[in-house]
Computed example of a mutant assay.
Amino acid sequence: MGMPNQVSVVEVGPRDGLQNEAEPIATAAKLELIDRLGAAGLKRIEAASFVSPKWVPQMADHREVMTGIRRRPGVVYSALTPNLKGLEAALACGVEEVAVFAAASEAFSQKNINCSIAESLDRFAPVIERARESNVRVRGYVSCVLGCPYEGEIEPARVTEVSRALYEMGCYEISLGDTIGVGTPLKAKRLLDAVGRDIPRDKLAAHFHDTYGQALANLYAVLEEGISVIDSAIAGLGGCPYAKGATGNVATEDVIYLLNGLGIDSGVDLDNLAETGVWITQTIGKPNRSKVGVALAAKIKLIKE
């Protein structure tokens, strides 16, 4: 396959990164984060989640966030819409891309969205149909692709089934999520071999968490297999509320440093990005989990002694 010349980075920090923070984060801070990410050159930013505040209190201001964004030309601001109600609310805010999510693990599906995989797919059919009627693109997430906190190993065939179902329903891209970060490069390649038989590789994205420190190695492995879309979160923010001990997403700064080193174009300014990582982690009082971000900040003395 060979490495891609260009990689599209999907920044999930404002949504996936912040959604589990216990302390409320000001809407203004979320909007500034989104603006700074756009200024650093990111072209795909997941900005909010249209879910019930009862389930995800941190995303209660989704309308204010979605309508408050200073939109930059050429940047797509997307939102997670798990059901028709969420989609209608997002459409009212002028969203141009939405995402739905299913799990490759039955137990995770039950604990995360209170229904079976089959039921979750049935629920998404009208959501995807309605979005497409409104000329809004739909992205599909599949979680637990390399392991589940409740079931352990997940067969690639199960991931393929769920991915294919979402793709056939009309999702233009399928993001494969290693929700608990247990994957290793060989497993990641095997997964891609399986899913790639049913879905073209240019329609697949990698969404890898760094719980076991393997995310960059896994990304390198799938880049070699021709994957050219990577999901990441500024400063490695985020975790999973339904997966104990699961640390954040792979840090965007670390991904950009890797891509730069491989001569792969991402269009992102790393120094600008590192400053943003320092700013958001100081703003919300959380550690910066990006090794590259911390190293660059020390070099340019961004971190207060």
Rank of each mutant, 00 (worst) to 15 (best):
L121P: 04
Y257V: 00
E11F: 10
T27I: 13
C115M: 14
H62G: 02
A103K: 03
F108K: 02
A205N: 08
L258W: 14
V222L: 01
T276M: 04
S109P: 06
Y242P: 04
R201K: 14
I280S: 02
S163D: 09
S175W: 09
E97Y: 08
E64D: 15
A274S: 15
A89P: 03
V195W: 02
P185V: 02
G236E: 09
G267H: 06
G245Q: 02
A103D: 10
E173P: 05
E23I: 04
C171E: 07
A48L: 04
G236N: 13
G152Q: 04
R137L: 14
A165F: 04
A298G: 09
R15W: 00
K30S: 04
E64Q: 13
I45M: 07
I154Q: 07
P57F: 02
V229G: 03
N83H: 10
F108I: 05
F108S: 05
D210Q: 06
I154A: 08
V98H: 05
V278P: 01
A29M: 02
R63C: 12
T184N: 15
V268H: 05
V127A: 08
C144P: 05
L121F: 00
E168A: 10
P82K: 00
S290W: 12
R201H: 09
D254A: 12
V229A: 13
S232Y: 00
E46I: 10
K286V: 14
A39C: 06
N272S: 15
E173Y: 05
A243W: 13
K187C: 05
T211R: 08
D254C: 11
Y141N: 02
M59E: 04
